[in-house]
Every structure is written in structure tokens, then in C-alpha cells.
Simulated scan of single mutants.
Amino acid sequence: MSIYKKILVAIDYDAEYEHIIEKALSIADSPEDVGLVYITLPSYYVQPYLYGMPDTSYNDVDWTKNAKTKLSEIATKFGIAQDNVHVKSGLIADEIHQIANENHVDLIVIGTHGRSGIKLLLGSTANAVLHGVKQDVLAVRLYEKS
């Protein structure tokens, strides 16, 4: 029996995420205890970097809708309830903290590359999530593909 009753898994579905979800599921008593979260950056963060590219449209509503569809597919694949799928737009760490608090989460699971400097211990996103959070955080090491 796990000491964690509600687990929130923060993933980037454009990167390695299977290992992170599998780790969370191995800790949970049931897939029903696991939730997934994906955070999109608001368009005002991204628009300046798209200047001069052929398609510079970045629509928050469309990106959030696409993210929800993708995350729902991932949840289905791992037996996670659709009610436990969260997609928000904003600052990643802040949104993860808010979702964790609103859903009375006991453990946040997040992947980390941990490449250099402070990132040697944690990736910048994992580090940001760790600071100021009330819940335990499990940073799952992501492996480089050879």
C-alpha cells in the first residue's frame, strides 16, 4: 500500500515521458490515483521567437486543445482516468503547484535531464517545481538516447 494517495505526473509529451509515467504507476496503488499535467506556454512568450517563420500563428486555444487531445490519448494508453488529465497555459512551475494544491496531490513526479550547473542535480523545470511546493517531489532521471 502506497503512502501517496494522489500522484500528479508532469510531462512533456514531445520528449521522453513513458518512463516517468511508469515510475509513478509503480508507486501508486491504482492508475486512478495518478493524474497527468501538461503546461503550454502562453503565446506572448512564444510569438517573438516565431518572427520570420512561414507560419507565425500561435493560438493559445488551439495549442491547449491539441495538448488536451494528446494528453488524453496518453492517459488512455496508461489506464489513467480522463478526469485526472490537466492542461493549462502559463508558467510551468506555477501551474503545476496550483493543480497539485487544487487536487490535494501528495506527490509530484517530474522528469529531469540534469545536464550542467544547477541542472546537474535537477533540470530547470524540475528545480522550479521543487521550490515553493508543499508536496513531495520525485525527479525521475531521463536517459539520453544513444
Rank of each mutant, 00 (worst) to 15 (best):
residue 2 S to L: 06
residue 3 I to H: 12
residue 3 I to F: 14
residue 4 Y to K: 00
residue 5 K to T: 01
residue 5 K to V: 01
residue 6 K to Q: 12
residue 7 I to W: 14
residue 7 I to D: 15
residue 8 L to C: 11
residue 8 L to P: 08
residue 10 A to N: 09
residue 13 Y to D: 11
residue 14 D to G: 05
residue 16 E to I: 04
residue 17 Y to W: 14
residue 20 I to T: 04
residue 20 I to Y: 13
residue 21 I to Q: 13
residue 21 I to L: 14
residue 22 E to M: 11
residue 22 E to H: 08
residue 23 K to M: 14
residue 25 L to I: 00
residue 26 S to R: 05
residue 27 I to Q: 08
residue 27 I to L: 14
residue 28 A to E: 12
residue 28 A to G: 07
residue 30 S to C: 10
residue 30 S to V: 01
residue 30 S to Y: 11
residue 32 E to P: 01
residue 34 V to I: 02
residue 36 L to P: 02
residue 37 V to I: 08
residue 39 I to R: 00
residue 40 T to A: 11
residue 43 S to H: 01
residue 43 S to M: 03
residue 43 S to P: 02
residue 43 S to F: 02
residue 43 S to L: 01
residue 44 Y to S: 01
residue 49 Y to M: 03
residue 50 L to Q: 03
residue 52 G to E: 13
residue 53 M to S: 04
residue 55 D to C: 03
residue 56 T to W: 11
residue 57 S to M: 07
residue 57 S to K: 07
residue 58 Y to F: 10
residue 59 N to L: 07
residue 66 N to R: 08
residue 66 N to D: 15
residue 70 K to P: 02
residue 71 L to Q: 09
residue 73 E to P: 04
residue 73 E to G: 04
residue 77 K to H: 06
residue 77 K to R: 06
residue 78 F to G: 01
residue 81 A to S: 08
residue 81 A to I: 00
residue 81 A to D: 15
residue 82 Q to R: 06
residue 82 Q to C: 01
residue 82 Q to S: 12
residue 83 D to S: 11
residue 84 N to F: 04
residue 85 V to A: 10
residue 87 V to H: 10
residue 89 S to H: 04
residue 92 I to D: 02
residue 96 I to L: 11
residue 97 H to T: 02
residue 98 Q to W: 11
residue 98 Q to L: 11
residue 99 I to H: 15
residue 104 H to L: 12
residue 105 V to C: 15
residue 106 D to S: 09
residue 106 D to R: 07
residue 107 L to F: 10
residue 108 I to P: 15
residue 109 V to R: 09
residue 109 V to A: 14
residue 111 G to L: 05
residue 112 T to N: 10
residue 113 H to R: 04
residue 116 S to W: 05
residue 117 G to E: 10
residue 120 L to Q: 13
residue 122 L to I: 00
residue 123 G to A: 02
residue 124 S to F: 07
residue 125 T to G: 05
residue 126 A to T: 00
residue 126 A to G: 12
residue 130 L to P: 03
residue 131 H to I: 01
residue 131 H to V: 01
residue 133 V to I: 07
residue 134 K to N: 14
residue 135 Q to P: 02
residue 136 D to K: 13
